[in-house]
Design a protein around this nucleic acid. Structure first.
Length: 548
RNA sequence: GCGCCUGUAGCUCAGUCGGAUAGAGCAACUGCCUUCUAAGCAGUGGGUCAGGGGUUCGAAUCCCUUCAGGCGCGCCA
């Protein structure tokens, strides 16, 4: 059932009443089942316009609805709600469509081939991924899957900050450890990276190259050490992402923005357009002209570029690729950066709405209620990999995807581990595995499983069965809402609820019995549930196991 | 000081472009495995939606304000 189908019915009816400028018809799913399957507040909204009591308007709208075949009843309730209850025939025919079309029935082509790029994770290749990156990753992956299911063409991009001060510092940290490892006295940089992985890389270089660089200055060895270290770390990041179930289509290197001249071109363009000026020996971008609170330096007094400069080039590159929509997923600590990047978008001649920045709030890591210190430089942090190993990838993802991205999250390792056996993700996956097992059993009993889509679904009359069918039909509405709001977590809650309808049904009613037609109908229902669970889990980037 | 986010059951969180009696999981307690998977089911208890004021037929939701927590306000990245 699509929202707009019902909205259309009401709009048509309202037009018969002579309403011309109809406000958008809101359709909602009532939380209480006694208020029908879907509900409209149109009469309440119209009351102000028509200067008539809402209940009266509601009744008139209901009277004007011509084709009521999809509904068992349409009631006016409360202050003027119009509550629709689906007819059994309609339910059966819709479920039949679901079984025949599968995922196609669940997806709607909202995007119509529009090109979207989602940039996420983009952690600096100066150390392993931590839990916060995991949250961004899980969110970005699910959003990408969601938009793809909605007919968008999605590109997933990871922006690799392989240029600039941080990677240089990384190289220097490794170089210092290398020297120290070979017994040389070499000062460790004040701000250097102190994690154990730096040691590992230094030792590896000792193994492979011995004392080749012992007498070298850092300046002469910089390219080697920096390059070696960041490539090593980037490979580790890629491995972590793979094991977490996250994939990227493109890896945009910051360094290439310089070597391919994109940075120079960007500066030239901004200069031509008159958005640059010189002051105090530095070059500034007039961000205030586009609503930012201050202008920003793009070339420092010492002639070096800032991080912002490559980011200008990076976003200019994105704009040139002609995506219909750009989405950046950032950690919430970067929120102050939004006005300035929007300023860039506008300065380059695009509406700032072209780029949506989705902020993912911080993850506070706890162990047994106590905060775990997270400092990459000091080398004190729990990596994403450790968390995956400890609590599992799907469980970790589920914890992220049962929350709105903009809520701060306390992730307690002890609680997560203790709850991993109780984690709701298993509840959903278990329903899927269970249905699979029912089918195996049915086959053993010699039931012709392949004829399931032709089963007489009208035989399903138990309240639990009706409830499940109705829930299944609401999926497209949930999907639509999740897509337009860019909120994958709505799918998470939906599949939990669906599983929550299935388990009690399974417990109360036997699926496979002597009654062959009824068995077929119930198997068909199970199949439908399974299809929707699989679709939901796939969007969220989680496994739909055949058995558990 | 200014800006952004958050505050809902003991805990972790949904619900927030205004809708009907505020929901789920965990934790607690009582039951259910010789029959398709007990990672399950049935049931019980649990709320000043941070506080105050306002807007209206109607507010957890919108506006104002106070309090509490997080984050940001670099010629760092």
């Amino acid at each position: 059932m699509r929202k707009k189908v019902v909205a259309k019915i009401i709009e048509d009816a309202a037009k018969l009443l002579g309403v011309e400028a109809l406000p958008p018809v809101e359709i909602e799913i009532p939380r209480n089942e006694q208020f029908g399957d879907i509900s409209a507040t149109a009469a309440l909204t119209l009351a102000g316009i028509l200067k008539k009591p809402p209940r009266k308007i509601a009744e008139e709208i209901v009277d004007s609805i011509r084709d009521k075949s999809q509904f068992e009843k349409i009631e006016v309730a409360g202050p003027g709600f119009i509550n629709f209850t689906f007819s059994k025939e309609y339910l059966a025919s819709e479920i039949r469509q679901l079984l025949k079309q599968g995922k196609k029935f669940l997806r709607e082509d909202i995007g119509q081939g529009k090109k979207v790029q989602i940039e996420f994770v983009s952690a600096n290749p100066t150390g392993p991924l931590h839990l916060g990156h995991g949250r961004g990753g899980a969110t970005g992956e699910a959003l990408a899957n969601l938009l793809m299911a909605a007919g968008y063409r999605v590109e997933r991009e990871y922006y690799v900050n392989d240029a600039g001060r941080q990677v240089k510092l990384l190289g220097l940290s490794v170089f210092a450890r290398y020297q120290q490892h070979l017994g040389a006295e070499y000062p460790f940089p004040e701000e250097g990276y102190r994690g154990g992985y730096i040691e590992d890389i230094a030792q590896e270089i000792v193994r492979l190259h011995g004392k080749d660089f012992l007498q070298a200055s850092f300046t002469s060895a910089e390219d080697f050490f920096t390059g070696y270290a960041y490539e090593k770390i980037l490979q580790g990041i890629k491995d972590d992402l793979r094991d977490f179930g996250i994939s990227f289509d493109t890896w945009q290197s910051e360094r290439e923005l310089f070597t391919e001249g994109v940075v120079a071109k960007s500066i030239a363009e901004l200069n031509e357009k008159g958005f640059l000026y010189e002051q105090d020996g530095a070059i500034w971008f007039k961000a205030t002209a586009f609503g930012d609170e201050k202008d920003r330096v793009i070339i420092k007094q010492d002639g070096e570029y800032t991080y912002f400069t490559s980011d200008i080039a990076y976003h200019r590159g994105k704009l040139e690729k002609r995506f219909d929509e750009l989405i950046d997923i950032w950690g919430a600590d970067h929120h102050g950066y939004i006005p300035r990047i929007h300023a860039v978008i506008e300065a380059l001649g695009h509406p700032k709405e072209k780029l949506k920045v989705l902020l993912v709030q911080m993850v506070t890591l706890l162990r047994g209620g106590k905060p775990v210190q997270m400092s990459k430089r000091a080398g004190e942090f729990v990596t994403l990999r450790e968390v995956i190993d400890e609590v599992g990838a799907d469980t970790t993802k589920f914890i992220f995807l049962t929350r709105r991205p903009d809520s701060q999250l306390e992730f307690d390792l002890e609680v997560a581990k203790a709850q991993s056996a109780e984690n709701p993700v298993f509840y959903v996956q278990y329903a899927h595995a269970r249905i699979n097992s029912i089918f195996l059993h049915a086959r053993d009993q010699g039931i012709a499983v392949e004829n399931i889509p032709d089963a007489k679904l009208e035989l399903l009359s138990q309240p639990e069965e009706i409830r499940i069918m109705k829930k299944l039909l609401l999926y497209p509405m949930v999907f639509e809402g999740a897509v337009s709001a860019h909120e994958p977590h709505r799918i998470t809650f939906y599949i939990q609820e669906l599983a929550g309808f299935f388990h009690p049904y399974y417990n109360k009613h036997r699926i496979v019995t002597e009654d062959i037609p009824l068995t077929a109908a119930r198997l068909a229902l199970c199949d439908a549930v399974s299809i929707v669970l699989r679709e939901g889990l796939e969007i969220l980037g989680m496994k739909a196991p055949e058995k558990m």
